[in-house]
Design a protein around this nucleic acid. Structure first.
Length: 373
RNA sequence: GGGUAGGUGGCAGAGUGGUCAAUUGCACCUGGCUGUAAACCAGGCGACUUCGGUCUACGGGGGUUCGAAUCCCUCCCUGCCCA
């Protein structure tokens, strides 16, 4: 019997595996660029093809508002709508319970939002989230969870895992009814900064049985060390033959540190959002971006909008081979594009940042796999 | 030549006796963004400073007043109208 996820190599606690999904096999550890509303902001499908992400992430809540289930059904899902052939993971909308907190009412049944688009009232439940993800036709669905925000009291954290477990079970039940595309469903561990609650949450979800397990509610303001501790507190309770996904993380070194603690999947807005805001991740030197011993990520972050780059003729990142850098775009030119508010600025930096993130993960993966051969 | 409106920080443009080193916007500078309500947000933006202040500033010069960007005189400059 073939498992969807096969670990093919390990290096310490780090693993590399093959995750088989309806739209292809994804090698882990993997970084998923974010296409919340069905597009990686500023990138065309051609740009994405050149960058070569193995899987992208989209958002159930946002796609539900627009284009809506009718349009998704009409097209036969998000893959067809986007003209994207490879796997897609969809977040359940659970995080919007947090990020749109001012517009919501929370009950055991679910969450009532006022749409951030037009203000109309929307009642979001685990069942609705599954139904929408079915219409989207994503490869990986996320259970509808509840993240209480940070910091959270122990009572808040306890409520978050209680609610999350209850909603996870409802997500699972509904998914079984509406999943006709062999999509996978991941549960989401909560528990804030409480190790025992993290462990408890992981055990409850594992008992329910998911295709993969996400760790949510981290990288939300707590120190990195706390985040690593929470990963370490959770990881032993997750089945080793299922992928682990650290949601929303993070800075390059956080990806590395988490991968070294057994995390297989990541997503984060930082490379794309920072690119749009003029912050660029570049190689710190001509040393390898990630050395074979996985000791560090050799990068630095620069503010390309800064005056110091006004007449800088250097390529954005001299040690990078992405579309932007190999084409030879100078720092001074990209700064100029930001100054005059030309969209090309955001496109060039987004291509570069996503490229560096993907390269970071590819190197981590390669090093883990090389170690076992 | 006559009349009239006006000259404020890089620009535009408020203020019209004290709470004005001077609202606001743009530009400029420096940061921050971690399951994307984000081409966004925050801070700075006369000089010096022991961070308490000190000095120089609202076209130039002079005056009134305890006190002037604000009132008066004069000069310079600009827009508009009439000749």
């Amino acid at each position: 019997m073939n498992s969807a996820f096969n670990v093919v190599a390990t290096l310490g606690s780090a693993r590399s595996g093959d995750l088989t999904l309806p739209h292809g096999v994804v090698q882990t550890p993997v970084f998923m660029p974010i296409a919340t509303k069905g597009a990686v902001k500023y990138l065309s499908q051609e740009d994405l093809d050149a960058l070569g992400p193995e899987i992208i992430l989209s958002n159930t809540y946002h796609l539900y508002l627009r284009p809506g289930v009718d349009v998704l059904n009409e097209f036969g899902g998000l893959h067809a709508l986007m003209n994207w052939k490879k796997p897609i993971l969809t977040d359940s909308g659970g995080f919007q319970v947090f990020s749109l907190a001012k517009l919501r009412k929370l009950t055991d049944d679910g969450v009532t939002f006022n749409s951030h688009i037009d203000g109309r009232e929307i009642h979001f439940t685990p069942e609705l989230s599954m139904d929408i993800q079915a219409a989207i036709g994503s490869d990986i669905w996320m259970a509808f969870d509840y993240f209480p925000g940070y910091p959270a009291t122990r009572a808040d954290a306890q409520r978050s895992i209680d609610l999350t477990t209850a909603w996870a079970e409802r997500s699972l039940n509904r998914q079984k009814e509406v999943n006709v595309t062999n999509s996978k469903l991941f549960g989401i561990v909560q528990g804030s900064s409480f190790k025992d609650l993290r462990a408890e949450s992981a055990q409850q979800l594992t008992e329910l049985g998911f295709d993969g397990y996400a760790i949510g509610g981290l990288a939300v303001g707590e120190p990195s060390e706390v985040m690593y501790e929470m990963i370490e507190a959770t990881e032993p309770y997750l089945p080793s033959d299922r992928p682990r996904y650290l949601m929303g993380v993070g800075q390059p070194e956080q990806l590395l540190e988490a991968a070294k603690r057994g995390i297989d999947m990541f997503d984060c807005v930082l490379p794309t959002r920072n690119a749009r805001h003029g912050q660029v991740y570049i190689h710190a030197s001509d040393e390898p971006l990630v050395p074979a011993d996985l000791s560090t990520v050799n990068y630095k972050k620069i503010t390309i909008k800064a005056a110091q780059y006004k007449i800088d003729k250097q390529v954005l990142d001299p040690y990078c081979d992405c579309l932007t850098c190999s084409a030879g775009y100078a720092r001074g030119y990209i700064r100029h594009l930001f100054t005059v508010n030309e969209a090309l600025a955001q496109r060039l930096t987004t291509i570069h940042n996503v490229s560096l993130y993907l390269k970071t993960m590819r190197l981590i993966r390669t090093h883990i796999r090389a170690h076992n051969e």
